[in-house]
Design a protein around this nucleic acid. Structure first.
Lengths: 334, 334
DNA sequence: TCCGGCGCTCTCCGCCCTAGAGTGCCAATT
DNA sequence: AATTGGCACTCTAGGGCGGAGAGCGCCGGA
């Protein structure tokens, strides 16, 4: 395994006997290799070539034989520095992806924090002109959404102020989706008794809270070009489909969502990911958590033949640092 | 030229005589080709191959022989629909880039509007916690900037309100850079006579206006993978350097800035762009204008051998539509 | 359980050869 | 003067061939 991961060429009995320091003759190694082949752990591309690991070979290797190497101090420091304190979660995660790809010389991939648990924290309305309105919505995840909405009529500055105050006082701290529901229900039930203010606020908020789901880009991929360095991926056709797969954000989001159940590092080898184009690739991921709840996933995509013992701790640490950075700055209510 | 652009193979006298409908024998064509080669307009990759255009050949062709084809109605409609009314200029331009790449099956590239002419329109401060402050800055270009700044001390809600009011009343409509300068000057000159409010507002604004320049990503590139379809670019090494060049945003920004002087379509052929990696590529660009002032550039990157007669009108129209969309929605003061 | 040896099988690489397309030049024709 | 046909030459792409190198399976022996 180690040899193949380093060289990328099928490994033969003779050269292994010579270089691996096992003090075994080629013949012995051949016998063992034949057994391993029967077990489906290794395979040879053609009759008289050396052996290379199969997917299950990798699986066994990673699950039972691998001992991870501790990260180098300077890498740890770089991660800490760069992931310390950045503006939005989006920027933070983009940085994380970039770091992953730079350190591993492979591709980094991240999903943004899940929106489900998004808590309404503060809203602000600014009138523009022509029945248009700038809505600024702050969620507890440090996220700031700007949105321009078209309103059925013009509102005065003070009307908007009043609506914002109403919403902020009444609903801060609740889940955004719930706020919407509650507002709808309340208006429906007690329409006649409500002041125009409340009804207007409801209409506005309805518009304001509606869209942010579909706007978000769920996935960042970085450093795809690094993958061109790997000889086993180096033909155009394969590469093209790989790139296209990587850029199908929704597909990738699905794939990564499958890693989200529990924290800790997960590894998909080759077609375990369910994508043809990733047949020669592995995906090393880890979920990151905010407030002890799994929020998103980040990881590395590279050739199956990658240095897992280095990549695994790196992904692990990055996920932890991202989690910490996001945790630390969840916003107290305004 | 037409033949080479279609086929991508050097064109020989014999096949040209056969297929081009010129009623000339190969020998005649050879003679003419020899002349053209002496003029430096065509060249052959090796002794007994056909001829292909040089950069100056393309230049001459584009400048004097080319007749553009009108765009197909459905393309025009698609552009109009998709570029009609989108949120921020950033989104609009990203869409433009995507459209360019989809329609041409090449790569689209855009720069965001220049920030220089950015007019201060409205500012708002929201206190977060821990001496942190959310600044919402609206410029006349419909752009909304969010920024979190760390302040030297905590401010109360009403202090912030006062500061914002001061700034909005006093400086709305001025260039952002000028606002900064004016504020600095004023505070310096008349420090003792100013209320604490003004000084605080100055400090805040100083912080608030400082960063947005460097945060922006100056360039979007879309559809790079489309370029993999072109056989003349289809080797890994070349491709890699092409991709890397395309992703060096600053480099690309520089390159595109050179097209910004005047509106209208500009074309860079091969190494005219000054980039080795773009030797096999052409860049078709057009500047777009907001309020009759050139604001940014958009265009298409593809193989030198591209269908200029289709690409040119497409880039032209896209630039005009983007300009119109941005123009239309410059914000009146709040 | 390990090893040495033997015959066999692949791939890779360099070499040669041929077919095909194109060239340059020259003399002949219109 | 423009055009053409003819001829010898050149270069590439692609197929076939053969040797070198690496590896394999199997078998008999320690």
């Amino acid at each position: 395994m180690e040899r193949y991961i380093n060289e990328g060429q099928p490994v033969g009995s003779r050269s292994l006997s010579r270089d691996a320091g096992l003090n075994l003759s080629p013949a012995t190694i051949r016998n063992v290799m034949a057994d391993l082949e029967d077990l489906g752990l290794i395979t040879s591309p053609h009759t008289s070539a050396g052996r290379m690991p199969t997917a299950s070979g990798y699986r066994l290797f990673i699950d039972t034989l691998l001992t991870v190497k501790p990260l180098q101090q300077d890498v740890i420091q770089q991660l800490r520095d760069d992931l310390d304190c950045l503006g939005s979660p989006g920027e933070l995660l983009e940085t994380a992806s970039r770091l992953l790809s730079e350190v591993t010389h492979m591709a980094g991939i991240v999903t943004l924090p899940k929106r489900e648990t998004n808590v309404f924290s503060h809203i602000e309305f600014l009138p523009l002109s022509d029945r248009r309105l700038l809505v600024i919505l702050i969620s507890s995840q440090q996220e700031i959404h700007n949105k321009i909405i078209h309103t059925p009529r013009d509102f005065t500055h003070s009307e908007l102020q009043a609506a914002a105050n109403f919403l902020n006082q009444r609903y801060a701290g609740n889940d955004i989706a719930r706020v919407r529901e509650a507002l709808l229900r309340e208006v429906k039930e007690t329409r006649e008794r409500l002041s125009q203010e409340v009804i207007d606020a409801a209409a506005l908020t309805e518009l304001a809270l509606e869209a942010p789901k579909k706007r978000r880009k769920p996935v960042f991929v970085t450093g795809e070009t690094n993958l061109m360095d790997f000889s086993e991926l180096a033909n155009m056709e394969q590469f093209r489909s790989l790139f296209e797969t990587l850029h199908q954000k929704e597909e990738m989001a699905h794939l990564l969502d499958r890693c989200i159940e529990s924290p800790g590092v997960k590894i998909y080898i080759g077609e375990e990911s369910g994508h043809r184009a990733l047949g020669q690739c592995s995906l090393v991921t880890s979920a990151y958590s905010i407030n002890d709840r799994v929020a998103g996933v980040l990881g590395v995509i590279g050739p199956t033949r990658m240095e897992y013992e280095r990549v695994i701790p790196l992904v692990d640490l990055t996920a932890k640092l991202v989690g910490a950075a996001l945790n630390h700055k969840s916003l107290p209510p305004i």
